[in-house]
Nucleic acid binder design. Structure first.
Length: 878
DNA sequence: GGCTTCACG
DNA sequence: ACGTACGTGAAGCCG
């Protein structure tokens, strides 16, 4: 069997892959989708074609186009997006590690390289396969040279293979005649002019008959139709030039050696290292264990009590240990400890009881050991007593979140990847959906490894993470705000909030009747039954069956959201009923039924508060989300009546008044806005008065509402379009409002612009307390993404600073409650609001604490102000 | 699992 | 010309 060489068109394939795959980046923000796509195509073909030799041709530098002068002349040359551009050198590096030769040569384009090597390889007796995303390469097909064109589709990559005969079959001409055809018909995408008036049909007909432009010209009188004849006569020189432009050279002077193209292992150690760095996990399967050098941790799992005690005393001596708790929230299956290079202890099952483990952990802390964990709050759920030693506990998960809040997770495999540059199998990969015990029974070895990672990773990552935290000046933020917040959240989770189950059930039942009534009315008016909950079906009913006008937006169908339906409601009674139906079913499914499912045996809901989720530093809540309980509409608001305090307690709630605008006033240092707040003005009315040029007393409710929307818009990163949508006014008007606003508060404009400029330069924005939010979108080549990045830059330091202040307030309030030995406790945080379950006789004291600690949480250039309310239910306390 | 919609700040 | 307000989580539909 003869040797087979596969020649790849580097830029063309990268290009294909880039546009065929969704964006993908590694932890450092390097874009990798084109590289991955390229490799997937290449490896698949290596598998299918089994070539003995492989090489890749690249253009010299930029993706030079074949006919660059025309491109530039016409100004149609699109620059390569930066996200793709940066992947070109990366791709070359990858190929180098796989020992695949790259051929580039000054002044010679990639397809000429492919043409030349293809021909020379054929002459040397190789079977040849040329891979490119560019159909122009078809002219290189012969009986022995196959051209492969991959097509990246959503369903996967489909390939078209062309030998000489396949080209003939498809176009009716030979590959070389294909060039002549192009010379006649031209190619707008390549800016080959061709002959005016001759398209694909005519060109094919002429070349089929005369086989070349020159020969056709010799028989010019015979050419039909007349238009083609005349134009060919007139544009003959242009046709010849076009043909020349379209011709891929096969006689370039290249220096290369087929020997270098001989395929080696491909999957070298170096390649594995690089793939690891790029986080191309899906390619790991190609490597042998040898290249992976997956170091398994040496883990001690002793069943000798004496040995365990010995180890604990050497941990105490070392002063620091990584600690992992294995199990789910409080239900501990074991722990692992890492206390020096290469020493890991996993204690799972066997003689170790939960109480024994808890005791040992507290003992370590008592003797001054610093414990490094991935999730301090989880540790608290296991051993609450550790809170007394908070200064000795480091939460690497939170530290990693502060360094990059954009990640989706901060599990051990994430920290190991980002800071230790190790790709560890995740818990999910090891256990799947199974419970730990189950896996432990079947695969003890693996479980022990995983357990070890839980302490190994934080222990080894901590020094690195801490150093970066210091570099970024966020250590204080961590020590004074984030770490103390952990125990506060733990308390809120543990206390929970009582929900009256029966009352909730009744609330839900009372919705059913009306929902069914609406359902029947809607079916009747629609003339048929359908699933009202399906936006797709609903869209068809409204905009096709009932022929309602301007079915405006669409992506996967008609848009049927509340904004659109509200516009239709006045003219179509069915739409009002749909809106009401939507409202009621939301209340029923998400709140009535949804909340009921979370009520525990103690009659309470213990939702989870997340500290490592949001990009801005806010908290989030889940299972269930108690931060989005209805309040805006009366019927929804009523659900708050089922949230009640323990007997002998009341709810006291305190919310910051316009904290984000006040933060903005402070950070921007705008004199006018600061003055307004210092005088305790109604800020929206004030804004209306100044922006619309009306005396303060004469501001109408409508004007005030508009001004309020503008104030909101400013905080969100104002855009004329967004404001116009919100106020249902024209873009022009919205734009006028914005301009007037900035004229009124020039300091705000300067600040926002400065913030965007800073973000563009540094790649992130900062809050008042030093929290960062990276904004990778700002360097995107996509207009939409970049604009988004600008809005984010304007919003994040405001939202983030407000979040910082509220966290400070939470910690201060909790501390006061504890210090003063009160029985009242903080049970919820809803972004700008704190809810305190307050002992009846502590109401006065609690109000005082809230005022002092919330208002005193930050010293801004404007006062912080809060509103306090209280009641026997959450409904009343608001 | 992605998309839509909608509840909150 | 591009097609959006910022930040979340949950439910239901549908390929």
């Amino acid at each position: 069997m003869s040797d087979k060489i596969m020649l790849l068109d580097g830029h063309s394939l990268l290009n294909r892959a880039f546009y065929g795959l969704p964006d993908l980046t590694n932890a450092e923000g390097k874009h990798t989708n084109a590289v991955l796509g390229f490799l997937n195509i290449m490896l698949r073909y290596v598998e299918e074609e089994k070539p003995t030799h492989l090489l890749v041709a690249f253009d010299r530098k930029e993706p030079t186009f074949r006919h660059i002068k025309y491109k530039e002349y016409k100004g149609t040359r699109k620059p390569m997006p930066a996200e793709l551009h940066e992947q070109v050198p990366l791709m070359k590096e990858v190929l180098k590690t796989m020992e695949i030769p790259i051929i580039t040569q000054a002044g010679i384009e990639a397809d000429d390289i492919l043409g030349t090597i293809g021909k020379e390889a054929e002459e040397a007796g190789f079977d040849v396969a040329i891979v490119s995303g560019d159909r122009d390469l078809l002219q290189l097909a012969t009986k022995k040279v196959k051209v492969k064109i991959p097509k990246t589709k959503a369903s996967g990559t489909v390939t078209e293979d062309y030998y000489e005969d396949d080209v003939r079959e498809l176009y009716g001409v030979s590959p070389t005649e294909f060039i002549d055809m192009k010379g006649l018909m031209g190619d707008t995408s390549d800016n080959i002019p061709g002959v005016p008036g001759i398209g694909e049909k005519t060109a094919a007909k002429i070349i089929k008959e005369y086989h070349s432009i020159e020969n056709a010209y010799d028989h010019i009188e015979e050419i039909k139709p007349a238009r083609a004849k005349n134009n060919l006569q007139e544009y003959y020189e242009q046709a010849i030039m076009s043909k020349d432009l379209a011709t891929i050279k096969k006689d370039c002077d290249l220096s290369y050696d087929f020997k270098d193209a001989k395929i080696g292992t491909l999957f070298t150690k170096e390649a594995y290292q690089l793939f690891k760095e790029l986080e191309l996990k899906s390619l790991f399967k190609y490597f042998d264990e040898e290249e992976k050098e997956e170091e398994t941790l040496e883990v001690v799992t002793t069943s000798d009590l004496g040995e365990v005690e010995n180890i604990f005393s050497s941990i105490k001596k070392s002063g620091r240990a990584g600690l992992g708790v294995i199990g789910v929230s409080g239900n501990c299956k074991g722990i692992s400890l890492t206390w020096k290079e290469g020493s890991v202890l996993a204690l799972i099952g066997g003689f170790v009881t939960e109480d024994y483990l808890k005791e040992k952990i507290v003992e370590l802390l008592k003797e001054g050991t610093e414990l490094i964990v991935l999730d301090y709050k989880a540790l608290l759920h296991f051993v609450e007593e550790v809170r007394e030693y908070e200064s000795q506990i480091q939460d690497v998960g939170i530290q990693a979140y502060l360094l990059n809040p954009l990640q989706s997770a901060y599990d051990y495999e994430d920290i190991a990847r980002d800071y230790l540059r190790q790709m560890l199998p995740s818990r999910k990969e090891i256990c799947g959906k199974k419970a730990i015990e189950e896996v432990f029974e079947a695969e003890e070895e693996k479980t022990v490894q995983m357990a070890a990672y839980f302490s190994y990773v934080p222990f080894h990552a901590y020094p690195l993470v801490l150093e970066k935290l210091k570099e970024q000046e966020m250590e204080e933020l961590y020590l004074t705000i984030e770490r103390p917040t952990v125990a506060t959240l733990y308390d809120m989770e543990k206390y929970g909030i009582t929900v009256e189950k029966d009352a909730l059930k009744e609330y839900g039942d009372q919705l059913i009747g009306r929902i069914e009534e609406l359902e029947q009315n809607i079916y009747e008016k629609a003339g048929k039954t359908f699933n009202i909950n399906s936006p797709k079906q609903l869209g068809v009913i409204l905009f096709e069956d009932l022929k309602m006008p301007f079915a405006k937006k669409t992506k996967t169908g008609y848009s049927t959201n509340a904004d659109i339906l509200e516009k239709l409601a006045p003219d179509y009674p069915i739409v009002s009923e749909i809106l009401e139906y939507r409202q009621l079913t939301k209340l029923k499914s998400t709140y009535a039924d949804g909340l009921a499912a979370f009520i525990q045996d103690d009659g309470k809901i213990h939702s989870i508060f997340h500290q490592k989720v949001t990009a801005t530093g806010r908290l989030s809540s889940s299972d269930p989300n108690l931060q989005n309980i209805p309040i805006r509409m009366p019927l929804g608001r009523a659900i708050r009546k089922v949230f009640v305090p323990d007997p002998g307690y009341v709810f006291v709630s305190a919310d910051y008044s316009q904290i984000e605008l006040r933060v903005l006033a402070h950070m921007a240092g705008d004199e006018h806005l600061i003055d307004a707040y210092r005088h305790g003005e109604d800020i929206h009315r004030m804004t209306a008065s100044q922006v619309f040029g009306v005396p303060f007393e004469e501001v109408t409710p409508l004007l005030r509402r508009s001004a309020k929307a503008v104030n909101f818009g400013i905080v969100y990163g104002i855009s004329a379009f967004g404001l116009s949508q919100d106020l249902k006014i024209s873009r022009k008007e919205a734009s006028d409002y914005i301009n007037k606003y900035f004229a009124t508060y020039p300091g705000i404009k300067t600040y926002l612009d400065g913030n965007v400029a800073f973000a563009k330069k540094e790649g992130y924005v900062k809050t008042l307390y030093g929290r960062i939010r990276p904004i990778p979108e700002l360097s995107s080549s996509n207009f939409m993404q970049r604009s988004f990045g600008e809005r984010v830059a304007m919003n994040s330091s405001i939202q983030g600073t407000a979040a910082d202040i509220i966290k400070i307030a939470m910690v201060r309030v909790s501390k006061r409650l504890q210090e003063e030995n009160l029985e009242s406790r903080l049970i919820l945080q809803i972004h700008d609001e704190l809810l305190i379950e307050t002992k009846e006789n502590e109401r006065k004291e609690v109000r005082k604490i809230l005022e002092e600690e919330m208002m005193g949480a930050a010293q801004l250039k404007v006062p912080l102000s809060i509103d306090i309310e209280e009641g026997k239910t959450w409904y009343e306390a608001k």
